[in-house]
Write a protein that binds this DNA or RNA. Structure first.
Length: 437
DNA sequence: TCTGGGGTCCTAGGACCC
DNA sequence: TCTGGGGTCCTAGGACCC
């Protein structure tokens, strides 16, 4: 049996922990650049506000209804997430962190410290609420896909009872027939529309089709796995995170990451090469930091430039180019050089860009990098120590405290930087912004 | 003026190898 | 009538997740 614990309206719930007066009031959190609505309280959902709606379009309605609005504060959400996951490690030795706000627990072979599975699920829920202040839903079932489905059903329950267990075949069957096809994990908008054309409206309808038909319609093996999962046969990997001696989750999961990305929309559209160069350098520095944090090195560097997605145009909205480095690296200096030449290859005078980004692929474990015949040891001497020193300083004194000049001087008026006008404080991770009572 | 960011997996087709 | 078998790597495109 797997349990899926999912935080309710996670970003909004994080804001409410530190602003309890926002309980029972409509609250929304915006995406980067204050662009879209990406988290809504139940009250905000009841007002008809939709996921992903552009802020500038719904702003009058938000003001009219007195909705509390926050820019996103990933420093805070990341730390709250870490706390939630930490609590979950007390309920199973096998925790798979699936996203910032949800995790799977493997319950196989556990002796519950509760009368039955449902009581255990509720105990998990109550403990997260009490220790971290975040409300959750718990779904328990024989496969991850069914646990997802159980979790969705739990969301409809009264606040204190949000746990659903699907143990028997009849419980699973009832849950399948209650679930609209578009709510099944792995069925997105396209597949849902396609399946509805064949008269498939619920998860039960899909499970009732022959396996071969599902294979043909739903992208081959992916569809077959989904079908078996709905029938209660686990097909998806469970990748528990390793725990250290203190029971803390180690950052790297079972499998190695495939790519590390940093992309941003600009506060205002940009065309000048020097400005784009500064933005790209900033993103490359940030992504290189992430590489080192995860002990990875990259040998493919991709730079992306995006134009207005919502304007009529000829040609693609995003252009990109990739450079291959002879040897994988996580040295910011080398990655900056590569990103810079990729940018020069891509940039066209007179074009107005609204977004840009840097992507590192071809990842290898740092320290086990395949080298080549023509590299001499002195090329690399002291560079890892330099990077480690830069990272240590920035960790201790704040991000960007020590930086490359190519990334620009923090003047605060760089037009490419995104808006974030309504960000709450970093209550739990910054000495300057500690929660004040 | 104004519409996010960061990921994953799978398939098909082409080019190439022995 | 009629042209093998078994592979790898890369790219583009499509779908999905939160």
């Amino acid at each position: 049996m797997y349990a899926l614990i999912d935080c309710n309206n996670f970003y909004v719930s994080c804001e409410r922990v530190f602003r309890p007066t926002l309980e029972n009031r409509p609250v929304v959190v915006l995406s980067n650049n204050d662009g879209c609505l990406i988290s809504r309280s139940d009250e905000a959902k009841a007002l008809g506000l939709k996921m992903g709606e552009p802020y500038h379009l719904v702003r009058p309605a938000l003001e009219q209804h007195g909705v509390a609005v926050f820019s996103s504060n990933y420093g805070l959400y990341g730390d709250m997430s870490r706390r939630v996951m930490q609590v979950l490690t007390g309920f199973s030795p096998q925790v798979e962190v699936y996203s910032i706000d949800e995790a799977f627990l493997n319950l196989a072979g556990l002796r519950y410290t509760a009368p039955d599975v449902r009581a255990y699920a509720l105990l998990i829920r109550d403990t997260v609420q009490r220790h971290v202040g975040i409300p959750t839903c718990v779904g328990v079932a024989p496969t991850k896909t069914l646990a997802k489905l159980a979790n969705r059903l739990a969301r409809k329950q009264p606040l204190m009872e949000r746990a659903v267990v699907l143990a028997t075949a009849s419980e699973c069957a009832a849950a399948l027939s209650q679930t609209p096809i578009q709510d099944v994990w792995g069925i997105g908008r396209r597949y849902a529309a396609k399946l509805r054309e064949y008269g498939i409206e619920t998860a039960a309808d899909l499970a009732g089709q022959p396996e071969s038909w599902v294979r043909r319609q739903l992208g081959g093996i992916t569809g077959v796995r989904l079908w078996h999962e709905l029938h209660g046969h686990p097909c998806l990997d469970f990748d528990p995170h390793a725990l250290d001696e203190d029971g803390c989750l180690l950052p790297a999961g079972g499998r190695q990451r495939r790519s590390v990305v940093c992309t941003r929309s600009f506060g205002r559209p940009q065309h000048a090469a020097e400005v784009l160069q500064e933005a790209i350098a900033t993103f490359a520095c940030r992504a290189a930091e992430k590489l080192r944090q995860q002990h990875l090195a990259a040998h493919l560097v991709t730079v992306l430039l995006g134009t207005d997605r919502y304007k009529a145009r000829s040609g693609p909205a995003t252009v990109s180019t990739t450079l291959t480095l002879p040897i994988a690296t996580n040295d910011t200096g080398e990655l900056l050089k590569a990103a810079h030449s990729a940018l020069l290859r891509l940039w066209r005078p007179g074009t107005v860009y609204t977004r840009a980004g840097v992507m590192f692929c071809g990842l290898e474990a740092a320290g086990q990098v395949q080298t080549n015949l023509f590299v001499t040891a002195s090329d690399q001497r002291n560079r890892p120590q330099l990077m480690a020193a830069v990272d240590t300083l920035n960790q201790r004194f704040g991000r960007g405290r020590v930086s490359y000049a190519a990334a620009g001087i923090a003047s605060g008026n760089a037009g490419w930087k995104g808006r974030s006008a309504m960000r709450s404080d970093l209550y739990t991770t910054s000495w300057e912004e500690l929660w004040q009572i």
